[in-house]
Computed example of a mutant assay.
Amino acid sequence: MDTLWYLAKLALALIMGMLCARAVGLNRFQKSAAVLQTTLVWLLLFFMGVNTGGIEGITTQFGTIGLSALVLTLLGVAGTVVFSLAVSSIVTPPVGDEGIAIAKRKERSLLRRLYDIVKEPLVLVGIVVLGLTLRLSTPLFDWFQSSLVTYLLYTLLFFVGMGMVHKQISFKGVLADKSLFLLPFYTIAGTYLGALLAPLLTDYTIREAWGMLSGFGWYSLSGILISDLGFPILGSISFLANLLRESFSFFLIPFFGRLGKRYYYPAVCTAGATSMDVTLVLLSSHFGTRTMLGSIYHGVIMSLAAPILIPLFF
């Protein structure tokens, strides 16, 4: 019920932004809404770092179980990338027929192209690390309440809704478009296929690995839920693994955006549940605003799937 209410509030924020844009006119506040989207993403990432730094014993968790979380994350992300690329190439239209626009780029030196790929994700992750460091090393954010992150998400979705109206994006046809409809399937199947190798590289069973990775980037939910089910160590690993998945997506989305249209599928599937909020603007900026529909749909389904799937494995 809490998950449904959370999703309902996100949807309401998006709808309110769309209604507001229609009320004031399609040609008004376009640039302002775009600037505010970017600003809110930066603020959101910063306070995510602050929020993470306030979790009790977080430094101990990173030191003792970080390696297991990293291995599980790499397996889940690798499985997702390989599976989504392989299956999407079979079931989706040719690249020329897809409604995806990749980020423009110029022909430059190899070093310059590499810099263009990594500079944005490095800045984004750096913002998160800055917030985490300040929370751990200073008393500046003792006042911080985690609910602030939620309110920032609502505000971000409001301006995303305005942006969708400005770009005249329609929600029609998602179920009829199998390239969008199958996105959650790519994410779930790819993550679980990658986790099949977990017993070879960690001390955990396939069942445990599937449970820990079933947050699909929703780290706060997965860690708390698994701990509440009576597995605090696995809950800590799941928290870090899903946090790492979200962090990796900041690097991988711009990288895939440089590779071509077909790489929208691994990009959005790597983002997991965050494709409807935290990474939504990043996805749309690298693959075009027409992909917002698929990204939001994917994020909503993954957020609904996580609390259903996690208890099945414990």
Rank of each mutant, 00 (worst) to 15 (best):
G25T: 03
L44S: 15
G288K: 08
D142R: 03
F239T: 08
R245D: 09
M18G: 14
L130T: 08
K9R: 01
R135H: 07
A23Y: 10
K119L: 04
S147R: 02
E56M: 09
Y264E: 05
G257V: 01
I301S: 05
E98M: 11
V123K: 14
L122N: 08
S275V: 10
L309E: 08
A271C: 12
W218D: 14
F83D: 01
L26D: 12
L156C: 11
S68T: 13
P311T: 00
G217D: 08
L196T: 14
T150S: 09
T138I: 07
M162L: 12
F29C: 03
A189H: 02
A34L: 02
L240W: 11
Y297W: 04
S220Y: 03
T73V: 01
I55A: 13
F248W: 10
M302F: 03
T270H: 09
V300F: 11
I237E: 03
N242M: 07
V129Q: 06
L111I: 11
Y265W: 09
E246A: 03
A23C: 04
F313E: 08
F248H: 03
M162V: 05
I90T: 11
R135K: 15
L200K: 03
K178L: 11
F313D: 00
P93K: 15
A271K: 04
K104C: 05
T92R: 01
G76W: 01
L200M: 11
S238C: 02
W218V: 07
L130N: 00
V125K: 05
G257H: 03
G161R: 06
L134I: 05
F158M: 04
S88A: 15
Q61I: 10
A271P: 04
Y6Q: 09
G53S: 09
F185Q: 02
F313I: 06
L259C: 07
A198G: 01
D2Q: 09
Y265H: 15
T155R: 05
W42Y: 15
F181V: 13
T274C: 09
L259M: 12
I117H: 00
G194I: 00
D228E: 13
R108E: 12
W143P: 03
L221G: 00
A305C: 10
L36H: 01
A33D: 09
S236H: 07
E98T: 15
G235P: 09
P307K: 13
T202V: 05
D277H: 00
G49L: 02
I58L: 13
L197Y: 02
F287C: 08
L67F: 13
L14I: 08
I253G: 00
T73R: 06
L75W: 03
L200Y: 02
S32E: 11
K31V: 13
W5L: 14
L4C: 08
F314D: 07
F47T: 07
V129D: 01
